[in-house]
Write a protein that binds this DNA or RNA. Sequence first.
RNA 1: CGGGGUGUAGCGCAGCUUGGUAGCGCGCAGCGUUCGGGACGCUGAGGUCCCGGGUUCAAGUCCCGGCACCCCGACCA
Length: 571
Amino acid sequence: MRQSRLFGRTLRDAPADAQTPGHQLMLRAAIARPLASGLYTWLPLGFRVAKKVEQIIREEMDRIGCQEIEMPVLTPAEYWRETGRWDLLEPITFRTRDHNGREFMLSYTHEELVTHHARNEILSYRQLPVMVYHFQSKGRDEARPRAGLLRAREFVMKDAYSFDADQAGLERSYALQYDAYTRIFRRLGLDAVSVESDTGAMGGDVAHEFQVLIDAGEDSILICESCDYRANQERAERRLPDAPAATDVPPAEEVATPSVTSIEALGTFFDAPANAFLKTLLLRAGDEVVAVILPGDREASHAKLRKLLGVMELTFAGDADFVRAGGVAGYVGPRGLHARVVVDTSVERRGYIAGANKRDIHVKNILPGRDFPDAERVDVHDVVAGDACPRDGGRLVLRRGVEVGNIFAFGTYYSAKMAGATFLAEDGTRKPFVGGSYGIGIGRSVQTIIETHHDDKGIVWPFQVAPYEVHVVALPVNDESVCRTAETLVAALEGNGIEVLYDDREDSAGVKFADADLIGIPFRVTVSRRSLQNQAIELKSRAGSELELVPSDIAAERITDVVRRARSAAP
RNA sequence: CGGGGUGUAGCGCAGCUUGGUAGCGCGCAGCGUUCGGGACGCUGAGGUCCCGGGUUCAAGUCCCGGCACCCCGACCA
C-alpha cells in the first residue's frame, strides 16, 4: 500500500478533547475518526487492526467448537417483550419503527434473539451442548460516551452464547470460554485479569470480567495483595473485623443537636469519629420505603442496592415517603421508623449515635437489635482500598480497569421466560436451555492495546495485530535509484505475502520517521541514498533501537525471513 | 440524568474584560533551494467566528434561548 494514497492523515497535534494517551494516538495515527459523540469510523489502518483482532478471536472461538453465525442489528420488539427487557432497556437503547409501525430496537445485545433461534433449531438433548458466536454492532445510548473507543454508543462486539442441558454442562462451556478468553487476550497483547463481577442487566449469578488494569479505565477493581481475589467494586466483599457484641450499653438517650445534620458536623459536635454514627438512607422500591442503615464512615454501594431492590435505577425517597416513614430530613435514624429496615453488615453490635427522627435531635447509645430491628442484614456498602480480603484477610488495593470482555453464566434466566425455549431431555421431559453469554468489545480492545503499547513517539503495535508488518520508507523518493530499489523491494515482499506500507511521499526524513514511529508498524525498512552507497538497506524494529544493515541484493529474503519468524513467534 | 467546561480556517490557539477592517503557529497549494529525525525562502488558497433571536449606527465581543462536544459522577464490551 502506497502511503501517499492512504485515506486518512496523521495529525501532528492531538485534538484538544482527546484525554487518554490511547485516545490521542488513535486519532493522531489515523486509526479512527469521530462522527458524533460515541460514534466512530474506522480508517484503513484501524480497520486492518480491528479485522486482525477479530480473526484472533475467531480462531479461538472456532478452537473450542463455537460456531460463527450472524444476527441482524435491527431486532423486533416482540422477542424483547418476552423477557421484559423491552421496557427495562428503554433508557439506554435506540429504537425505530418500520413503515407498518412495527417496533424495532438496535440490538443492545443478542440473548433473546439467539435463544429464539435455539428454540427452533434445538429439539433434543442429543443436540446439546452447542455454542454460537457472531461479530455484530451493538447500539447503546450511553448517557456519557467517553475516551474515544473506550466507551462508544455503537461498537462491534464478539458475543458468544452457550446452550447446555444442565448446570454441569454450563459450567463446562463457561470454563471453555474462560480459557479461550485467556488465550485471546494473551494473543492480543492485553494483560487482562479476570475479576468477579456483578451481573447487572444480564441477569444470572456467576460472572467474570476481563479487566486491563490501567488508569484510563473507568471500572474500580479491588485486588488482594496476598491471594488471587479480584473483584469489581460493584460486587466486592470484605472480611469484617471481629467485633464482639458490646455489653452494658446504657439506654438510648436523646441529645439536642440544633442544625447539626451531616456526619462531618456531628463528628465535630460530639468530638467522635465518623464510625461512631449511623446514617440512614431512605429509598423507594416500588411502593415500599426502604431504610438502609450504614456506619457513618461507609458509603452505600449503588450496585449492591440496585441488586437488593431489583431495580435498574435507585430512587431516593420523596417528601411523602419521609412523612410515611416518620423520618425528618437531616435527622433520619433507625429508631421508630415505619419502613423496611435493611442493616448493612458493617454495622456492629454496639452503641451508636443516630438521628432521632425529630427535628434538631439525635440519639446516643442506640443499639442494633435492641433499639431498632436488625434482622435483615445485607452487605450494601462499598468495599474500599485498605479493607480486608474476604478470602484470606489480606489487604485490598483499588485499581482502575478497562473491561475488555466478560462472561456470564445466566442459567435459565432467558429460556424460562421465552415460551418453547426447551428441549426434550433423555428422561422424556421438557427442560429449559441452560445458557451463558460471552462478550468482547472490538473497538475497546483496539484502543486498550494502544493505551498499553506506546512510547512518547507513538504506537508500538504487538506484531500480530499491527495494521501492516513492514513499513518501507524511501529517502528521498525523488532519487531514481532509491525509488527503484524501494519499489522492487516492496513488490518482492508483497509477492512473498508480507503486508507492506510503503512511504512514497515527498516529505523530509524527519516527517517520515516521525510518522513511522507514530503509526507503529513493527518493522521499518529504510531505503536511502546513504545506505545504497553501501549497497544496503536498513532494518529496524519499532520496539527496539538497534539497526541492521542488510545488503540490498538479499534484502527481500532477509526481511521475509525476519517477518516469518515474527509470525511464528507471535502468541 | 446531576455538576463543571469549551465552541473562532483541517489541527492547536489568541482576540471577548473595554463593541469599530478576523489574527498567529502548524498543516494545505505553487515555485525554488534542501534531503537520515517533524528543513528554508517567496507567493497563495482557506472563515455562515456553533445556531437563532435581541440591544446598538455597528456584535466574534454585550443580553436571552437553543444545539454540539469534552471532563467528573450514576450505567456497560
